[in-house]
Computed example of a mutant assay.
Amino acid sequence: MDIYFKEEYAKIYELNGDGKVEKFNFESDDGRAEYIFLKRHVEGETETYYDITTPYGYGGPVFYPQSPENLSKLISDFRREFEVYCKKNKIISEFIRFHPLLDNHKHLEDYLEVTFCHNTISINLNNEEQIFSEMSGKARNKVRKALKNNVTVKKEYSKEKIKKFIEMYYETMDKNNASNYYYFDKEYFKNLFELGKDKVVLFNAYHEEDIVAATTILKGRKYIHYHLSANTKKGYQLAANNLLLFEVAKWGGQNGYKNFHLGGGHDGAEDALFKFKSSFNKAGALKFYIGKKVHNPEAYSSVNEFHERKRPEIKEKDLDFFPLYRR
C-alpha cells in the first residue's frame, strides 16, 4: 500500500489541525474497499455539520475486488453504504485528490463529479541509464554542471540535519511568497519524521561543507514521492536541485522502487516548477483527477449562505472552489 493510504500519514494532518482521521472499510462477496479521510467540522447557522477530504497529497478509496469482473458491483455497493455513513454522520460534502499512479478515480464517475485537474510528473526507475536518457538535454547538462562543481548528495536522518532542513524550508517559503498553509509548524516536521526511516527520508545536496538544496522523500511499497523541498541561491547557481533529484531517482531504482513521483506545479499551474519537474521525464506526465460530491444539497446550500453573510466579499473566481464555504 502506498504511503498516502496509511493511517499514520493521515494522522500528521489531524495533528496539524486539518480534521480528524477516519477510515471507512467495506467488505462483501465481491471484495473489499478501504477509504481514509479527514473529517472536518462545518459551522452552520443553527447546527454543526461535517465534510471530508483526503489528506495533503493524494488518496481516495482503494478497491480490492475478488476478480476484475467484481469491481463494478464492489464499487456500487461500497458507495451505497458510504452514502448511508455520510447521512448518519451529517457529512454534507466530500473532496478527493485521487492518486495519479493508481488511477483510482476510474469507475467512480457515476457516483462523484470526477474532474481532470492537471498533470503531474513521474520518473520510471527501471535503471539508471533510462532515468538519465529520459531527462531533457538541458536537465542532463545541469546534472553534469553540478557534478563538475563538486556537488554531492547524501541521505541523512540526524536531528541536526532535520533542524537545518526546517530552517532552509522556511527560508524557501519566504523566498517563494508561499501561502500560509505551507508554513507547517515545527510540530508538523516532528510528526513527519517520526513516521520513521521506512516511510520518510531526507536527502541533502552539499557544496563543500554547505547544504545548498534538500528534499524530504516519502516511501511507499512501490513508489517514492517528492514531498517538501528547500534550496538556496547558491544551490540554484550550482544546479544542485537537478543532481539532488537525479540521485534520489537512482537510489529509488537501486532499492526496488518502481516510480519516483514528483507531483505538479504550484496550484496546478504548468509553471516554472512544473517545467523543472517535467525536465526529468519528457514523457512522464500523469493525469491528476479530483472528486467532488455534495451529500446533503439542502444543508450545503444553507451553509454556503451562512458563510456568505459572514464573508460577503465573494469573487467570481471563487465560485469554482469546493466546498464553496471554505473558499
Results as ranks from 00 to 15, higher is better:
residue 269 A to S: 13
residue 251 W to L: 14
residue 197 K to P: 07
residue 210 D to M: 12
residue 268 G to N: 09
residue 208 E to N: 15
residue 222 K to L: 11
residue 195 L to H: 09
residue 269 A to Y: 12
residue 240 A to P: 04
residue 273 L to P: 03
residue 248 V to F: 11
residue 220 G to H: 08
residue 244 L to P: 05
residue 261 H to R: 01
residue 296 N to L: 08
residue 254 Q to K: 15
residue 204 N to W: 00
residue 223 Y to S: 07
residue 278 S to W: 00
residue 292 K to M: 05
residue 196 G to Q: 09
residue 244 L to M: 09
residue 259 N to A: 13
residue 240 A to M: 08
residue 246 F to P: 04
residue 241 N to E: 01
residue 301 S to Y: 04
residue 296 N to F: 05
residue 195 L to R: 06
residue 243 L to H: 11
residue 207 H to G: 02
residue 272 A to Y: 08
residue 290 I to V: 15
residue 297 P to K: 01
residue 201 V to L: 11
residue 212 V to Y: 00
residue 265 G to T: 05
residue 210 D to G: 03
residue 212 V to W: 00
residue 206 Y to R: 08
residue 270 E to T: 07
residue 262 L to S: 05
residue 239 A to R: 08
residue 229 S to G: 15
residue 242 N to T: 06
residue 302 S to Y: 00
residue 199 K to A: 12
residue 295 H to I: 00
residue 233 K to D: 13
residue 236 Y to H: 06
residue 220 G to L: 06
residue 224 I to G: 03
residue 289 Y to V: 02
residue 202 L to D: 00
residue 237 Q to C: 06
residue 268 G to M: 10
residue 232 T to F: 05
residue 232 T to V: 08
residue 248 V to I: 15
residue 198 D to W: 03
residue 258 K to S: 13
residue 261 H to L: 11
residue 203 F to H: 05
residue 296 N to C: 06
residue 231 N to H: 07
residue 240 A to R: 04
residue 286 L to N: 15
residue 234 K to Y: 00
residue 242 N to V: 07
residue 266 H to S: 07
residue 271 D to P: 12
residue 216 T to D: 03
residue 272 A to L: 09
residue 214 A to F: 09
residue 265 G to M: 10
residue 202 L to R: 00
residue 298 E to D: 14
residue 284 G to N: 03
residue 227 H to K: 04
residue 201 V to P: 00
residue 235 G to N: 01
residue 253 G to C: 10
residue 242 N to C: 07
residue 205 A to P: 05
residue 197 K to H: 12
residue 216 T to C: 11
residue 265 G to F: 12
residue 271 D to M: 07
residue 241 N to P: 05
residue 221 R to W: 01
residue 230 A to I: 08
residue 279 S to C: 12
residue 294 V to D: 00
residue 275 K to F: 04
residue 257 Y to I: 06
residue 296 N to E: 10
residue 236 Y to K: 14
residue 283 A to I: 05
residue 238 L to C: 09
residue 200 V to N: 02
residue 272 A to P: 01
residue 201 V to M: 13
residue 262 L to I: 06
residue 204 N to L: 10
residue 195 L to V: 11
residue 221 R to D: 13
residue 282 K to S: 08
residue 287 K to D: 13
residue 207 H to T: 03
residue 221 R to E: 13
residue 266 H to F: 14
residue 227 H to G: 01
residue 225 H to S: 10
residue 279 S to E: 04
